[in-house]
Protein backbone atom coordinates (compact mmCIF):
# COMPACT_ATOMS: atom_id res chain seq x y z
CA UNK A 1 0.00 0.00 0.00
CA UNK A 2 2.83 2.39 0.86
CA UNK A 3 4.54 1.44 -2.41
CA UNK A 4 1.39 2.26 -4.37
CA UNK A 5 1.09 5.65 -2.70
CA UNK A 6 4.67 6.86 -2.84
CA UNK A 7 6.36 4.64 -5.42
CA UNK A 8 9.97 3.59 -5.12
CA UNK A 9 11.42 6.85 -3.80
CA UNK A 10 11.35 5.92 -0.13
CA UNK A 11 13.38 2.92 1.08
CA UNK A 12 10.94 0.62 2.79
CA UNK A 13 11.29 -2.59 4.75
CA UNK A 14 8.93 -4.61 6.89
CA UNK A 15 9.18 -7.58 9.18
CA UNK A 16 7.03 -9.62 11.49
CA UNK A 17 6.95 -12.96 13.23
CA UNK A 18 9.30 -14.64 15.64
CA UNK A 19 12.48 -16.54 14.75
CA UNK A 20 10.45 -19.71 14.07
CA UNK A 21 8.03 -17.92 11.76
CA UNK A 22 5.22 -17.86 14.32
CA UNK A 23 3.38 -14.84 15.71
CA UNK A 24 5.66 -12.42 17.48
CA UNK A 25 8.71 -10.28 16.93
CA UNK A 26 12.39 -10.85 16.39
CA UNK A 27 15.17 -8.38 17.08
CA UNK A 28 17.18 -10.06 14.34
CA UNK A 29 14.59 -9.33 11.66
CA UNK A 30 14.12 -5.76 12.94
CA UNK A 31 17.88 -5.21 12.62
CA UNK A 32 17.80 -6.50 9.03
CA UNK A 33 14.81 -4.30 8.22
CA UNK A 34 16.59 -1.22 9.60
CA UNK A 35 19.60 -2.07 7.42
CA UNK A 36 17.39 -2.57 4.37
CA UNK A 37 15.59 0.75 4.86
CA UNK A 38 18.68 2.68 5.97
CA UNK A 39 19.62 5.97 4.34
CA UNK A 40 21.44 9.03 5.65
CA UNK A 41 18.03 10.57 6.44
CA UNK A 42 17.43 7.80 8.99
CA UNK A 43 14.60 5.36 9.57
CA UNK A 44 11.10 5.82 10.97
CA UNK A 45 9.69 2.66 12.57
CA UNK A 46 6.00 1.85 12.88
CA UNK A 47 4.99 -0.93 15.25
CA UNK A 48 1.83 -2.78 16.17
CA UNK A 49 1.70 -4.37 19.63
CA UNK A 50 3.85 -4.04 22.75
CA UNK A 51 6.49 -6.64 21.93
CA UNK A 52 7.23 -4.98 18.61
CA UNK A 53 7.94 -1.67 20.31
CA UNK A 54 10.15 -3.18 23.03
CA UNK A 55 12.07 -5.24 20.47
CA UNK A 56 12.48 -2.19 18.22
CA UNK A 57 13.93 -0.20 21.13
CA UNK A 58 16.34 -3.05 21.74
CA UNK A 59 17.32 -3.14 18.05
CA UNK A 60 17.94 0.62 18.07
CA UNK A 61 20.23 0.33 21.10
CA UNK A 62 22.23 -2.32 19.26
CA UNK A 63 22.98 0.12 16.42
CA UNK A 64 26.14 2.24 16.29
CA UNK A 65 25.64 5.49 18.20
CA UNK A 66 25.57 7.82 15.19
CA UNK A 67 22.75 5.72 13.75
CA UNK A 68 20.75 5.62 16.98
CA UNK A 69 20.05 9.36 16.70
CA UNK A 70 18.58 8.83 13.27
CA UNK A 71 16.05 6.11 14.04
CA UNK A 72 12.66 7.01 15.50
CA UNK A 73 9.77 4.84 16.65
CA UNK A 74 6.54 6.61 15.72
CA UNK A 75 3.71 6.43 18.22
CA UNK A 76 1.12 6.07 15.48
CA UNK A 77 -1.26 3.47 13.99
CA UNK A 78 0.82 1.16 11.83
CA UNK A 79 -1.05 1.31 8.51
CA UNK A 80 -2.09 4.96 8.46
CA UNK A 81 1.19 5.94 10.11
CA UNK A 82 3.29 4.12 7.52
CA UNK A 83 1.45 5.74 4.62
CA UNK A 84 1.63 9.25 6.09
CA UNK A 85 5.26 8.83 7.15
CA UNK A 86 6.29 7.58 3.72
CA UNK A 87 4.38 10.40 2.00
CA UNK A 88 6.14 12.99 4.17
CA UNK A 89 9.50 11.31 3.65
CA UNK A 90 9.06 11.18 -0.13
CA UNK A 91 8.70 14.98 -0.06
CA UNK A 92 12.09 15.20 1.60
CA UNK A 93 10.94 16.00 5.14
CA UNK A 94 13.34 15.40 8.03
CA UNK A 95 12.96 12.38 10.28
CA UNK A 96 11.57 14.55 13.06
CA UNK A 97 8.85 15.99 10.81
CA UNK A 98 8.06 12.52 9.45
CA UNK A 99 7.63 11.20 12.97
CA UNK A 100 5.55 14.14 14.16
CA UNK A 101 3.25 13.99 11.14
CA UNK A 102 2.63 10.27 11.70
CA UNK A 103 2.02 10.84 15.39
CA UNK A 104 -0.65 13.48 14.67
CA UNK A 105 -2.84 10.48 13.80
CA UNK A 106 -2.73 9.23 17.37
CA UNK A 107 -5.37 10.36 19.82
CA UNK A 108 -3.75 12.85 22.20
Amino acid sequence: MVRQMVGEEVPLASCGGDTDGGLGTSVESILSAIDAAWSEAGVAILVDLGGAETNSEMAIEMQPEDRQQRIAICNAPIVEGAVIAATEASGGASLDIVRRTAEELSPA
Partner: peptide
Amino acid sequence: LVMKVGGASGPLYGT
Protein backbone atom coordinates in the same frame (compact mmCIF):
# COMPACT_ATOMS: atom_id res chain seq x y z
CA LEU B 1 17.32 -14.23 25.04
CA VAL B 2 17.02 -10.92 23.18
CA MET B 3 17.68 -12.58 19.85
CA LYS B 4 15.65 -15.76 20.36
CA VAL B 5 12.73 -15.24 22.75
CA GLY B 6 10.77 -12.61 20.83
CA GLY B 7 7.63 -11.12 22.31
CA ALA B 8 8.13 -8.53 25.00
CA SER B 9 9.82 -10.99 27.34
CA GLY B 10 12.90 -11.35 25.10
CA PRO B 11 14.08 -7.75 25.54
CA LEU B 12 12.89 -7.68 29.17
CA TYR B 13 14.67 -10.83 30.34
CA GLY B 14 17.54 -10.05 27.97
CA THR B 15 17.94 -6.65 29.60
